[in-house]
């Protein structure tokens, strides 16, 4: 597993306590998991997606990632409706291990963009990890 100083935590996304990230892309927000999350989970073998059109509250479970011997639930960083899922991950879940930031999981139409501002930046997230 990576040491904390080996983690890749880009500054252009925001983070949650549950190790998801969110990034505004035009009118939608892309959601994925952090380098820390993919590293902890190890080889990801399956992504359980929500359906396009489903709506979730901030912090609500919207899917899960599976490794061989663990399941990690995914919680939505901000409320909204799922407008797209990353179909590439269905056949190649390992893409998340390869680059967890390029390989987003879902795209949402946010219900309240101000929730985005409440999320942690990279520095705050690192502080949390250092505990």
């Amino acid at each position: 597993m990576k040491e904390l100083n080996e983690l890749n935590l880009p500054a252009n996304v925001r983070y949650t306590e549950d190790h998801e990230w969110a990034k505004i892309v035009g009118s939608t927000v892309r959601i994925g998991v952090s380098d820390y999350a993919q590293d902890q989970l190890g080889d990801i073998v399956f992504v359980e997606f929500p359906e396009v059109g489903d709506s979730f509250e901030q912090g609500e479970e919207f899917g899960s990632l599976e490794s061989v011997k663990a399941v990690s639930e995914l919680y939505l960083p901000l409320s909204g409706e799922i407008v797209a899922i990353n179909e590439d991950l269905a056949d190649s879940p390992e893409l998340i291990n390869e680059d967890p930031y390029v390989n987003w999981i879902v795209e949402i139409k946010p219900a309240d963009k101000s929730e985005f501002e409440e999320l942690m930046n990279a520095e705050q997230y690192m502080d949390m990890l250092e505990g």
């Binding site: 399956f46 599976e66 490794s67 061989v68 011997k69 663990a70 399941v71």
Partner: peptide
Amino acid sequence: LSTREQHIR
């Protein structure tokens, strides 16, 4: 596919 099973989930 053990993630379906009781000892994990």
